[in-house]
Design a protein around this nucleic acid. Structure first.
Length: 208
DNA sequence: ACCCAGGGTCATA
DNA sequence: TATGACCATGGG
């Protein structure tokens, strides 16, 4: 199905675990194309490092993050995350924790909610965690598997139980859903993309 | 000109 | 627990 159409995605876009984490925070409710611009700014200033970010002035950091939207909030979130990340011993220190501990620790960082935490767990730490995003909620609500207003944890548990603890599968599965969302909607009747959008001519309105 | 995007926090009831 | 306001840019 989706895999047939798009092939392996090899997600997440980003070369290092830290870059993946930064992207996960910056992409909150934001188009990825805008996140790329912000990350490019950080790279151009050689600031894509936790220490450099912690030491940056707020107005400078916010300026670099500007294209990704919510730049004042995201500057604070990135800083609080980087402070925590350094204190925790960066990747090596955190990678010692088991998935439940690591998830709990991530959720304790201001600015990191369930979805961002799971992006980081799955794509930066390669832990078997299934990411529930807006696309996934809408798609499976319209397919009838969920009503659309279940809690995040309920859906995550259901997917993880149904698919088994398979990091590579979780990785591809979520990536393919998002990949499909980038597909242009070809008018009606069966645009194929409408299961992922808020409003669909055929399926009505679902979820958040 | 409008709608939306790979959410999260905080205030309120 | 459950809504709602708020954050803000850029592309279609």
């Amino acid at each position: 199905m989706l895999f047939r159409a798009y092939g392996p995605q090899g997600w997440w876009p980003g070369d290092t675990p830290f870059e993946i984490m930064v992207g996960a925070i910056l992409t909150q409710n934001t188009a990825w194309s805008n996140v790329e611009k912000a990350i490019d700014n950080l790279v151009a200033k050689d600031k894509l490092h936790p220490r450099a970010i912690v030491n940056s002035r707020h107005d400078h950091l916010a300026g670099w993050l500007r294209p990704s939207g919510y730049f004042n909030i995201k500057a604070e979130r990135l800083k609080s995350f980087c402070r925590w990340y350094l204190d925790a011993g960066e990747f090596a220190g955190l990678d010692r924790l088991d998935s439940a501990e690591l998830r709990g620790a991530l959720l304790g960082v201001k600015g990191i909610g369930p979805e961002t935490a799971d992006d980081i767990l799955l794509y930066a730490f390669n832990r078997p965690v299934f990411v529930i995003d807006a696309y996934t909620r809408r798609m499976f609500a319209r397919l009838g598997r969920f009503s659309g207003d279940e809690g995040y944890e309920v859906m995550r548990a259901d997917f993880e139980q149904a698919l088994g603890p398979d990091t590579r599968l979780f990785n591809e599965y979520h990536a393919l859903i998002v990949r499909h969302a980038k597909q242009v909607c070809r008018v009606r009747p069966a645009c194929g993309r409408c299961v992922l959008t808020r409003v669909c001519p055929a399926a009505g309105r679902v979820g958040r």
